Computed example of a mutant assay.
Amino acid sequence: MADARARRLAGIAFVAPFLTLYVVILVCPLLMGIGISLHRADLFGARTFVGFDNYARLLVDPVFHQAIGNTLLLTLMIVPALTAITLGLALALNRGTVAAAWLRGLFFSSSVLSVTIVTLIWRFILTPDAGLVAEILEASGRAPIPFLSDPDLTIPALAITTIWWSIGLPMMLFLAGLQQIPQDIYEAAALDKAGAWTRFRRITLPSLRRTLILVVMLQTAAQLQLFGQAQLLTAGGPSGASRPMVLFIYEVAFVRWELGYASAAAEILFMLVLAATLLQYWAVRPREDQ
């Protein structure tokens, strides 16, 4: 009994620092945000309890509805494409050659750039005045395309920028997963004269199931919180056509100074991220159990 109690206390002592930081950094701000969302509050500390009025306002706020739609559209455009591209790159670069190692470093290099540098690069590429794409189109006798000012093109422009920026980590996760697959399975499949597509469908993809789930979950949570690209590349315009939820929250809190209203929107975003994560987890759990 004494040994078991000592081991239990030792375990508590080991996890206590992490749990303390977790509560201070994550749980307490979450609870404080819920409390602020029930008030009419500003950045100067003035608060008036209004209950669920902020949430009721959000339900009928067309600007917030547009921000939700933009966020979901960006997520749907980015996550599947990014997953497919990075999986393809991992399959192509899963080799021990010098060229493959150099290309892995090249593709990963974009991930270490800050969002400011990324948006500057893509502004030079996409701007219709003197951007790279505009120069190419003008050289071929075509009119420049206003990627950053056309309401129908701003979301695709943000999606392309984000995919280019985010390639590195998912590619490395898939590479790590590929290197964990025993090579004797492929050798046995080769003896059975299985083709490349059969090997991918029957061996590679099932073996990467956990990695695939991890990549999709991480990227879904990340893209639902997309902010910097939209703020710096398009400023949410034109007319809110590229304003995601986090940019809406930022503008409400720090431009309009409606802290309670912004906190209510943040709580809805938190619930959206949580619901998306749990939905993906539950969708794959029965297969994992089997």
Rank of each mutant, 00 (worst) to 15 (best):
L73R: 08
L74T: 02
L76T: 10
L82K: 10
T83R: 03
T86K: 12
A92S: 00
N94F: 00
N94E: 05
R95T: 15
T97Q: 10
V98G: 13
W102G: 11
G105M: 01
F108N: 01
S110I: 09
S111A: 09
V112N: 09
V112Q: 11
L113H: 05
S114L: 10
T116S: 04
I117S: 06
V118T: 08
T119C: 09
T119I: 08
T119A: 08
F124W: 14
I125H: 04
I125Q: 03
P128G: 12
A130E: 09
A130Q: 14
L132W: 10
I136S: 07
A139M: 14
A139L: 08
I145C: 11
D150P: 01
D152Q: 15
L153G: 10
P156K: 15
P156D: 14
A157W: 01
L158W: 06
T161G: 12
S166I: 01
P170Y: 00
M171S: 01
M171V: 00
M171D: 05
L173M: 05
L173V: 14
L173H: 11
G177Q: 03
P182F: 08
D184A: 11
D184I: 10
Y186T: 03
A189S: 03
L191Q: 11
D192E: 03
D192V: 02
K193D: 06
A194F: 01
F200P: 15
R201N: 05
R201P: 05
R202G: 06
T204F: 06
L205F: 08
L208Q: 04
R209F: 14
I213H: 15
V216F: 14
